[in-house]
Write a protein that binds this DNA or RNA. Structure first.
Lengths: 222, 222
DNA sequence: CGATCCAAAATTATAGATAATTTTTTCATT
DNA sequence: AATGAAAAAATTATCTATAATTTTGGATCG
């Protein structure tokens, strides 16, 4: 995966900030100060502002005119919303991708599933999970649909990292396997139905807040 | 509808350019030169560049590093893609909106349908159509979903204006009426099914190209 | 006549400077 | 100590200037 060294500076900054927001390195609600970021990346603030517009469009940041840009906050409602949007769109993508899925692709997807089951931290689990979904969906040949799904995956990953920052225990992903079996049998509708349920499975877990109290954290697991 | 005079200049330029691209005032593939646009709006090119990033995210423009920004081209494939995405997402939105639909809202939606039937040009038909969809979907209370649907509507409108720039003949919208009847009866699933079919209805029409030949133009009608 | 190379013009991308606004701090007053 | 106004500092938004790249328009050669 090329690090895109010929990208414009604004694009590079946008990717770097997106990664920090998704990983939780920057807290929800935190201010993004253009001069500070510009200084850190050794640029002027002009490309930083362009990067902000991109983050805004992805739903990772919110901007108020003359008041600055903040990392987008999120709540259980948004977790559910993203899950349902993903369900609707990934099912659509899978229906179109199914006729173009080769057994080579399905083998790769199975590898990704195994990698997910073996992973010992959230980060690598998320990577494997994303690879699985991307592999079976990309052959739909609908670039706008894929781009929208990618943004939703970014949001999902953010929720995931927020809930399971440190302690993570991989479990074998039966849904992924059931989807692959159905696809190998040419049973697209069954695969689509399982996928739709799969991405709407919301994990919950108690988390200690800054104030010491415990609350429930929710996230899309799939 | 406030013209947003306290928006940032970049936002104003973005809206103005989006309107031109959607209406077809600027051709697909046309270059958007930042200095020219800056001069026209009496600004520097910095806010223009920010506006470009927004248009890019909406799928209305495409940018190649150091080569500039162009109005996005589109083909039958993209018309279909947008129609299917709309079907999937509007059905989802309607299922969530249905419990919150009051008869006042449904009356407004009926007014919008009548306005559409009466309209004598594409532009006002499109406006009425968009009002109908927005009215019955917004109560879903899912902001990200609504924002995504709005971008898809913008794309739909663009296809519509490209196919029916001048000659337009309104027809009475039976689908809208069927949807309203189902919603009034509390039959959400029937309404959703009709809506899903409705936005996938693709209109076709012969169009004379610049070179004099005729080709088929396609667009989402709904 | 057409292809190709080169210089001039135009254009994009970034930097540095300035005006306008918001946030923070200070300090007098209750 | 709490409140609130005023001044100072920080920050955003925009403009002007400059460097880097691409496009354009010939001139030259086959």
């Amino acid at each position: 995966m090329a690090k895109g060294t010929d990208d414009t500076i604004a694009v590079r900054i946008g990717k770097a900030l997106a990664d920090r927001i998704i990983s939780g390195a920057i807290e929800p609600g935190a201010r993004l100060r253009q001069d500070h970021i510009a200084e850190e990346f050794n640029t002027s603030h002009v490309p930083v502002r362009e990067a902000f517009r991109r983050l805004e469009a992805q739903g990772l940041a919110v901007s108020e005119p003359r008041r600055g840009v903040r990392v987008a906050a999120f709540d259980l409602g948004e977790v559910k919303e993203v899950a349902e949007m993903r369900a609707a769109l990934e099912v659509l993508a899978l229906r179109h991708a199914a006729p173009h899925l080769t057994s080579a692709i399905l083998d790769q997807a199975e590898e990704a599933t195994k990698a997910g089951d073996k992973s010992r931290d959230v980060r690598s689990w998320e990577e494997a999970n994303r690879a699985f979904h991307r592999l079976i969906l990309t052959p739909c040949g609908m670039p706008r649909l894929i781009a929208t799904i990618d943004d939703l995956h970014a949001a999902s990953a953010r929720f995931l990292f927020a809930a399971w920052r440190s302690e993570w225990e991989a479990r074998t992903d039966q849904d992924h396997r059931a989807i692959l079996v159905a696809l190998r049998q040419g049973n697209t509708e069954s695969a689509a139905a399982t996928l739709g349920r799969h991405v709407q499975w919301i994990g919950r877990k108690p988390v200690r807040t800054a104030s010491g109290a415990t609350r429930e954290a929710f996230t899309i697991v799939g």
